[in-house]
């Protein structure tokens, strides 16, 4: 990954006092529906994951930031350029990879990338395309028709296309949807490598485990409002502490360590809540042993982003009757 790229200069020296992406009161209304409600975000040289249930406003947000939709209210700046006042300058700075696999199946991988390099007006389109393809490990299959590519390869080809003009910001809408496990891991490895080169990555996803693993910060959006933004670890800590479960027979021993709360007991399993479950597990286990109880199993469960998500958003989606006409209208307007 660290070979010297001569023509493709990802993340080459940028500096600005403003955060790369800043939104202030960004709002989009479709008639009575408020799709995005006064969004205030500042994102800079990190992988920012926007999570939310279906219809929560993720894609609408991305479309406004990529100048494909005009906000009803508020504004956003990308590298200091306003999406409403200076959309052309914004488009110079970004790449947008939509949810659908938008590559041309009738062209080869190389032709697809060269085409984008040319349309972006990159000085040496062929060389840049070669390097982008090499970077995404597509060089061996570059001259095959995209029709024969797997889903993961198509995604990587999209990333290669998106990199040709050295964007400061990469917008990825559900980048791993429909991919197998290996394909997903690979895409994330590439995305993380891009961030390490100084790129800002804005990604929407449904996959909590992936967001937890890859994103530096996460915003959770529900009904167009961002209900929380923080690092995955901080978000998880805000919801609940680690749960330590100990299987043992007998009564609860006295003298529990500091910072541990007893939650309850079911069928010979004691459950405790602690800040650092991984450290508290052995401590508790020793306390049990000192009291003469035979500990049969110790397990620690850390809260996942799923827990955070359910705590903040709930499982309340799909309560309204499905209105087909409204849905279609929304799709059209997105």
């Amino acid at each position: 990954m660290d070979t010297a790229f001569t023509y493709l200069k990802i993340g080459s020296g940028r500096s600005s006092s403003l955060a790369t992406i800043e939104t202030s009161g960004l709002t989009k209304r479709f008639e009575s529906l408020v799709a995005v409600d006064h969004l205030d975000l500042a994102i800079d040289r990190e992988i920012f994951g926007l999570l939310g249930p279906n219809g929560s406003g993720k894609t609408t947000t991305v479309k406004m930031l990529t100048t494909l939709l005009i906000p009803t209210e508020g504004d956003a700046t990308i590298c200091g350029y306003s999406v409403t006042k200076d959309p052309l300058a914004v488009r110079e700075q970004i790449s947008y990879v939509p949810q659908d696999m938008a590559v041309d199946p009738k062209l080869t991988g190389r032709e697809n990338v060269i085409f984008f390099a040319k349309v972006y007006g990159v000085p040496r389109p062929r060389e840049v395309a070669d390097e982008a393809l090499a970077m995404l490990d597509l060089a061996p299959r570059a001259d095959d028709l995209v029709r024969t590519y797997s889903g993961g390869m198509r995604r990587r080809l999209e990333l290669a296309q998106a990199l040709v003009h050295d964007p400061a910001v990469l917008f990825l809408d559900e980048p791993t949807i429909g991919l197998d496990v290996a394909g997903r891991r690979r895409i994330w490895e590439h995305i993380i490598a891009l961030k390490d080169r100084g790129m800002t990555v804005f990604v929407t996803t449904h996959y909590m485990d992936e967001a937890d693993h890859a994103c530096d910060r996460i915003g959770i959006i529900d009904h167009g409002r961002v209900v929380a933004t923080d690092s995955p670890a901080a978000l998880k800590a805000s919801v609940c502490r680690d749960i330590v479960s100990i299987r043992a027979d007998g009564p609860l021993p006295g003298g529990l360590p500091e910072g541990v709360a007893f939650l309850g007991r079911t069928d010979g399993e004691f459950r405790f809540e602690a800040d650092r479950g991984d450290e508290m597990g052995p401590v508790l286990s020793r306390a049990f042993a000192r009291a003469g109880l035979a500990v049969r199993a110790v397990s620690v469960r850390q809260p996942t982003l799923d827990d955070v998500f359910l705590a903040l958003v709930g499982e309340s989606d799909d309560t309204e009757a499905f209105d087909d006409r409204r849905f279609r209208r929304m799709l059209r307007r997105r």
Binding site: L68, R91, I94, P98, Q99, A102, V103, V119, Y120
Partner: peptide
């Protein structure tokens, strides 16, 4: 339908091209 046009529209190239 392919989603290609969305990408084009987000490109800095003048849209009439």
């Amino acid at each position: 339908v392919l989603g290609y046009l969305q990408k084009f529209l987000a490109l800095p190239a003048p849209r009439e091209s």
